[in-house]
């Protein structure tokens, strides 16, 4: 084991995901030959993290568009008149609790505990679906009041930004169902567990984007 540590120390001090703790565990030949390269789980997580960061950059472009256009209401309603903070509060609670449930589900999957995993995933789905339901209700209400995306540049930017997040959550819900089906059909295989890990990262990431959304769009819009 000491030989392994020495070779790992001489080269790149920070090979992707190199884990000093796991360096003390017994290694397979395949693992040692790679010279301290990280486990596939860590590399997959890193790759998915890069994707999430690119998604964050896309969202930041929409945020910048919204921030530039927030004052351009073309004589129409502004955020203070349109936003219902009670609704936003309930949406926030739904998404935060669903993020928590998703964390429990990923622990349940790693512990190979079926009832725990399926129960937490079902809770994640119900809370996420409630979030989407509330958002669709809000959008329908806005369009019915004549404040649809065609009313002003402000509302175009608003619907693009919030709708893009809503589409991400909808895609996440479909992915969630796929993961439940895959664990049910294929069991707790290493590759399936890696997909569950990526799904968890995606779902927590959506909650981070929502934090920026409710703070910058709804709360600031309602105060300024």
């Amino acid at each position: 084991m000491s030989g392994f540590e020495a070779t790992a120390g001489r080269g790149d001090p920070n090979p992707i995901g190199y884990n000093r703790e796991s360096g003390h565990r017994p290694h397979t030949a395949e693992h040692a030959a790679a010279g301290g390269v990280a486990s596939k789980r860590i590399v997959v997580g890193y790759g998915f993290w890069i994707f999430l960061l690119s998604d964050i950059i896309m969202f930041s472009a929409f945020f910048a568009t919204y921030a530039v256009l927030v004052g351009q209401t073309a004589g129409g309603p502004n955020g203070r008149e349109l936003f219902d903070l009670r609704n936003t509060g309930i949406e926030t609670a739904c998404l935060l609790l669903s993020s928590f449930a998703c964390g429990l589900a990923s622990i349940g999957a790693q512990a190979h505990r079926g009832s725990w995993f399926y129960g937490a995933m079902a809770a994640t789905f119900i809370l996420g679906a409630a979030f989407i339901g509330l958002e669709v209700q809000e959008f329908v209400g806005l369009v019915a009041r004549g404040a649809g995306p065609t009313r002003s540049a402000f509302l175009s930017a608003f619907f693009t930004l919030v709708g893009c997040h809503g589409l991400h959550v909808t895609a996440g819900l479909l992915w969630l169902l796929t993961m439940m089906a895959q664990v049910f059909a294929k069991g707790y295989r290493a590759d399936i567990l890696r997909r569950v890990l990526c799904f968890g990262l995606f779902w927590h990431f959506l909650d981070i984007v929502w934090v920026a959304l409710f703070s910058m769009v709804y709360l600031m819009g309602a105060t300024i």
Binding site: S22, K40, F100, L104, I107, Q110, R113
Partner: peptide, 28 residues
């Protein structure tokens, strides 16, 4: 058996799972 011993693939035991839940509870 080899695969299960590789880092990152160990099944969590009860103690580790409780630790993980604790972290999520603090975050929540």
């Amino acid at each position: 058996q080899e695969r299960d011993r590789r880092p990152g693939y160990e099944r969590l035991d009860g103690h580790e799972a409780v630790e993980g839940i604790g972290s999520y509870l603090i975050g929540l």
